[in-house]
Simulated assay, not measured.
Amino acid sequence: MPKSESFRAVYRVVGGQEVDADVYLPRPKQGNFVAVINIHGGAFMLGSSEMVNSDQVQDCLDRGWIVVAPNHRLCPQVDLLEGPIGDCRACLAWIYDGGLGDAISKETKSVTYTLDLDHVFAFGTSSGGTLALCLGFGVPRPVAGIYDMYGPCNFGDAFWTSELPGVLAMLLPSLSDTFMNQVYLDDPVPIKGGVSLEGQRPGRPDFSDPRQAFAWSRIGRGRVLETVYPLGDWDQVDPLRNIGPTFPPTFIVHGTEDAMVPIDLSRALYAALQKAGVQCGMVEVAGEGHTFAARMEVGSQTWTLQRQGFDFLENLP
């Protein structure tokens, strides 16, 4: 089944607003089906379920997994904990409570897909990696395993308040706060926004769009975290501060040349996982920068290296 063959299911309604997910089904088979939640990137302010990498989706389908790619409400109208994290945790609860199974039954009718609820995994790229990690704590029943691709963490690090000259150089001098702050007027809170950061055909930011201009200006000025979570209580949202012996098995993939989420942040996360005795692994992809999933070619060395994250999940008991 190619990536385009999916169906959409609403997993949460908040204040009358529907929040949905794209569901991709593998070929029918005997036995129960693993499900993986595949969360898009976008600095918590951009992106959509349509922007996940289709080759990675197909890889999961070829393993016989059901792929659930959720949308989530975008910051800054909602904060990180209430919006992106809260929605993704609601998606996980929806799966555990039988919502995904019911949605599949309605869609397929004569074909049965029975879920293996002991093997629900989470995967995400960039901010989606953070959200995948947030399904390992703060929930009644965590996921069984996590694959984090260069997800932001270690929110107390000085990097998160540092300017990024390369991003600032992209911004147009004519961009005003009045123009960019139009994002606060969006009603309802959007669940889609911006160009693809991780899909097959990434585009450049469109600075005629207030949301894209707003997000990139916050990234360049080192103000992402204060924008998406002004409360600043990092214990609530920082995966690094929530690592303990019961944290799910976790695999990390990160490019060595990442300037937008430096690899040292993931190295600190990996060290915390090891110290806590959590089953874990990490691959450092030489020469790759941020959002390299958008440029991968199937069969390349980078493709082979990042597949180790899915192999790690597949081999969990």
Rank of each mutant, 00 (worst) to 15 (best):
F7V: 06
V10Y: 07
D20C: 07
A21V: 04
L25D: 11
F33D: 03
V34Y: 06
V34G: 09
A35Q: 01
I37D: 05
L46D: 11
S49V: 06
V57F: 02
D59Q: 00
W65Q: 04
R73L: 06
L74R: 11
C75L: 06
C75A: 10
E82T: 14
A90I: 00
G99D: 12
G99W: 12
A103I: 07
E107K: 15
S110D: 15
T112A: 14
T112W: 02
Y113S: 05
T114V: 13
L117T: 09
D118W: 03
V120H: 06
V120S: 02
T125H: 07
S127P: 00
T130Q: 07
L135F: 03
F137T: 07
G138R: 06
A144E: 03
D148F: 11
D148Y: 03
M149F: 13
F155R: 09
W160P: 12
W160E: 09
T161H: 13
S162Y: 02
G166V: 04
P173V: 11
S174V: 14
L185R: 10
D187C: 05
P190A: 10
K192V: 13
E198F: 10
E198Q: 11
E198W: 07
P202K: 03
R211S: 03
A213F: 04
A215Y: 03
W216Q: 01
I219Q: 08
I219Y: 02
V224N: 01
V228N: 01
V228G: 02
Y229N: 02
Y229S: 05
P230G: 07
G232T: 01
G232Q: 07
D233G: 02
D238H: 11
P239C: 09
T250R: 07
T250P: 04
V253H: 05
H254N: 01
G255C: 11
T256H: 00
A259L: 14
A259V: 13
A259G: 10
M260H: 10
I263Q: 01
L265V: 06
L269V: 06
Y270K: 13
A271W: 00
Q274A: 13
Q274S: 13
Q274R: 15
K275E: 15
K275F: 12
G281E: 08
G281C: 08
G281P: 06
V285K: 01
A286F: 08
E288T: 14
E288A: 14
T291L: 12
R295H: 12
M296F: 09
V298H: 03
S300Q: 08
R307Q: 15
F310K: 03
F312P: 09
L313F: 09
L313V: 05
E314N: 12
L316M: 09
